[in-house]
Amino acid sequence: MSRAVERDVLAGAGLALSVLAAAAVLAPKAGSSRIRSQRIAALPRSGPQPRTAVRAARRLNGAAGMLAASVLADSSVEHYRGSFKNRAMYTPLVVSALTLATSLHGTSDMRPLAHRLRDGCYLLAAATGLLGTGFHFYNVTKKVGGFSWQNLFYGAPLGAPMAILLSGLLGFCSERVRETARSPRPEMFGLPAARTIAAVTGAGLLGTSGEAGLLHFRGAFHNPFMAVPVTLPPIGAALLFNAAARGQGRAHPFTRAWMWLLTAMGLAGVGFHAYGVSRNMGGWRNWSQNVLNGPPLPAPPSFTGLALAGLAALGLMREHRDA
């Protein structure tokens, strides 16, 4: 295969995979509860709340998977656009695909045990995110003008690799929660798991909102709806921080509702971005150019991924007094 065809195939595969995976993550799990109860019955019941912990862990796998799907699709498109100029640009595709597979595995795994491979993979994702941020930072600063609006707008997006970092972090959290199914309370590194995850997710929401803010500022907020992802998520983050700070054993119905709102917002964002694509010269008839040119279709669902993580944390909090 010529390099160009190879690139097309790779980016195409990345896209297809991420769409399928996102659908799988979001699909209602018919019949899964039956399997779950059967399997769990067979496991040793040493902790007080294995079900709660495993359910929360699986939800977190789902959230991590959603983020990974978003990264896979986004980096496929964006790095394709950048012609994979640097070999390292293939990394996020491979790693997010792995993370996605891992997360799918996690969502269907009922065992209250961390999985070594999953752990490894999530750590790899987190490391990739950190490294990617470094790379993108280098790309921005080495350009003439350095750390300027021009390079922040049009250089490698600083915030983008954070999404795979968050995916890795949430996945890693998921494994920790799963592990503590048999201990008195779900925790990570001695911290209450649910509250920690709520805080991490809140921070993730702020960061992602910052990224959307930067890019929507680049687009001059020409459509009033562009203000939505810079207003709703920070409120969500504040609600999560609040839950993390003093949330034990409470239901947080408003925060939960807000998370569902953000989940929907992330999905609706794809529609808005599709409309944005249509406003470029040639519209969707000229899709092969405009999908690259226009607002990134796969970016908004990272809010969905984070909101799902928030829901998992809130769920755990509700069901487990000390989480």
Binding site: R218, G219, A220, H222, N223, G276, R279, N280, M281, N293
Partner: peptide, 11 residues
């Protein structure tokens, strides 16, 4: 540098 009404952004 972004859409405006029926005008397309620069290509």
């Amino acid at each position: 540098s972004a859409p405006r009404g029926l005008a397309h952004p620069c290509v």
